[in-house]
Design a binder for these strands. Structure first.
Lengths: 223, 223
DNA sequence: GGCCGTTATGTGACTAGATCACTGATAGGC
DNA sequence: GCCTATCAGTGATCTAGTCACATAACGGCC
């Protein structure tokens, strides 16, 4: 996670933008602004549509759906090198959505103004492909979320999530946070984790889940 | 639902395309082909990506998610005057999706070849807006589906679906079809409908649900 | 170190929903 | 009038979500 140099050509950090014609690259870098946003900032959400399309250079944005009763579910994450299409979506059209994007870490992003975005879409085939690919990927992500929620068992989903988000072998998250990830209730997570611990797959601590038997978790998550 | 005249300018049927410049309109109509597809045809799906973007002139396309265990859930419907963005999505990029689109009725659509689509996106701001609006709308639809599945009770969702799909006061659908709409099991629907009938809100027949008390259903669906 | 408010987790009882394995009912074709 | 789909009803059982709590661990602060 290298820092961004002041005049670095960050376009090369995006798969899909690497082969832009120099002229387009110039437009993109010169007419957009690199911004920094602290962790936990709400980037967009009901009643807060951003002016710009964001291209994430560093950090991750968590996009989640909120329900009236306070429960949540994570839809997808935007990581460095990806664009936040939802931003584009509400920038260009529809506003009636109930999802919000939150900076999960401190963030560095290129903010591309609406007009520049439109210009680039119309003049660069590469950029068009980049944008449409981003849309498709998100759609696909949403399909997977729907499939998971509607048809997969909680234990399987939890095992999967633990593996996915525990890079070091220890996952730092409370049961409540995991519940919000998966769109379920905290008690459900507590009980499932207790069961995993009983089987010797994990050790639980306050705010942590330590993986003992990754293979067992993986096996469950693939069943 | 008037028939399509052979050389009709169908672009006016689409909100968002009505103010196209004549040159663009000409490109769109002359370089795309009006096709007819019988009901129940799979328009796209895993392993079947179409060559063209479809603009629906008549009929509806049901887009649904399939699970391995045979269960399904309806994601959204594309109606006359809308475009099938998923088609665009898989046309332009990503292929790994598990949703499929099925002609729910006989269909008349304008098939816009990939090259023409790309041309139009780059040359017409109106067309761009049209495409992005379509994407946003679908995204929003998916958010609602997720919210429903994750957080709303089955009885509420069923009441809502009955009202939504029973234009004449009688809904023609089997319990299994309603279950596939809502992503649940047939038995769950049968029991819920039995309860609605017990309360005097509907009368059930083989393959039909007749609404007796629409207000009661609406009240439930809004709670 | 002991006190205290906050946050995190544990647990029982209950309701809703999903699954399984059936049975019974009805329409339509012959 | 019979046969065979297809459609609908039902009990038992399991998983998941809800509610109402009881404990337990941490992080200051005196």
């Amino acid at each position: 996670m290298a820092a961004i140099a002041q005049d670095e050509d960050w376009t090369t950090r995006f798969t899909g933008l690497s082969r832009l014609e120099p002229r387009i690259r110039e437009v993109l870098t010169s007419r957009s602004q690199v911004i920094r946003v602290p962790a936990d900032t709400v980037i967009f959400g009901p009643g807060k549509s951003p002016e710009n399309m964001l291209l994430l250079l560093e950090g991750t944005v968590r996009v989640q759906q909120l329900a009236e009763n306070g429960r949540e579910v994570v839809l997808y994450r935007v990581t460095a090198g990806e664009s936040c299409v939802l931003t584009t979506a509400c920038m260009l059209a529809y506003e009636d959505y109930s999802a919000e994007g939150v900076a999960e870490t401190d963030i560095v992003a290129a903010a591309v103004p609406r007009a520049v975005f439109d210009d680039l879409v119309s003049t660069s085939k590469e950029f068009r492909t980049f944008v449409f690919t981003a849309y498709s990927r998100r759609m696909t992500d949403l399909f997977h979320v729907i499939e998971d929620i509607a048809f997969r068992r909680m234990d399987i989903r939890l095992a999967q999530k633990i593996i996915e988000r525990a890079d070091t072998g220890v996952l730092k998250a409370t049961h409540a946070q995991l519940a919000a990830e998966l769109g379920t209730a905290r008690e459900v997570i507590s009980r499932q984790l207790a069961e995993f611990q009983r089987r010797g797959w994990v050790t639980l601590g306050r705010g942590t889940v330590e993986i003992l038997d990754c293979d067992a978790l993986r096996k469950l998550s693939e069943s």
